[in-house]
Amino acid sequence: MKISKTKIWVGLITLLLVFYIVVMMQRAVLLLGDSDWIAKLLGLSYFVIPLVAAWALISEILFGARTEKMANVLEAEGGLPEDNLPRTPAGRIVREAADAEFEKYKLEAEAAPEDWRSWFRLSCAYDASGDRSRARKTMRDAVALFRAHP
């Protein structure tokens, strides 16, 4: 089994975040033991920040794992969109070509709104067109459909 560079980076960032959470919790306990009410309030807030960080970490790892699982299913079915768009000399996708290709995937998703595969491909098209926020939202929709109808 080959481990990608992305997974190595995710692992390193996860370790750093876990270290941060442990240090924040330690500081929170120290501040809560202080007699000053401001220090206690700060200690309480030090408990909240790591909880939010842990929630964000877990949700992002689950999102990545589910997306990878969906990509593996599409690859096995031969349904992944081909990466054949023209690129600039710097390696970036030519925006006009991505926008033209986008319309095809938009129509596919409109024709099959309950099929996670069409939403996955639409998300890839958003990403190729440079619209990262819509790509992420669309991929979250694809994940929800995948989980409801695998």
Rank of each mutant, 00 (worst) to 15 (best):
S4Y: 12
T6W: 14
K7H: 07
W9C: 09
V10C: 07
G11S: 11
L15R: 06
L15V: 08
L15E: 01
L16E: 14
L17C: 15
V18L: 15
V18A: 14
F19P: 00
F19I: 15
V22N: 11
M25P: 02
M25A: 14
Q26C: 06
A28V: 08
A28E: 01
V29T: 13
L31W: 02
D34A: 14
S35N: 13
I38E: 14
L41R: 05
G43Q: 09
G43T: 09
L44C: 03
S45H: 03
Y46V: 02
Y46D: 02
L51V: 12
A53L: 14
A54G: 10
W55P: 04
L57P: 08
L57R: 15
I58A: 14
S59K: 13
L62E: 04
A65P: 01
A65V: 07
E68W: 08
M70R: 10
A71T: 03
L74P: 05
E75D: 13
G78R: 03
E82I: 06
N84I: 08
L85C: 00
P86E: 05
P86C: 10
T88I: 07
P89K: 00
G91Q: 00
G91W: 00
A98Y: 08
A100Y: 08
F102G: 00
F102K: 04
E103A: 04
E103Y: 01
K106F: 13
K106S: 11
E108W: 14
E110T: 03
A111P: 09
A111V: 06
P113G: 12
P113M: 11
E114Y: 10
W116M: 02
R117Q: 10
S118W: 05
W119A: 11
W119S: 09
R121S: 10
C124T: 06
A125P: 02
Y126L: 04
A128T: 00
A128W: 05
S129N: 05
G130L: 04
G130R: 02
G130N: 05
G130T: 07
D131S: 03
A135N: 05
A135C: 02
R136I: 04
K137V: 03
M139Q: 13
V143G: 06
A144V: 00
L145Q: 07
R147E: 08
R147S: 09
H149V: 04
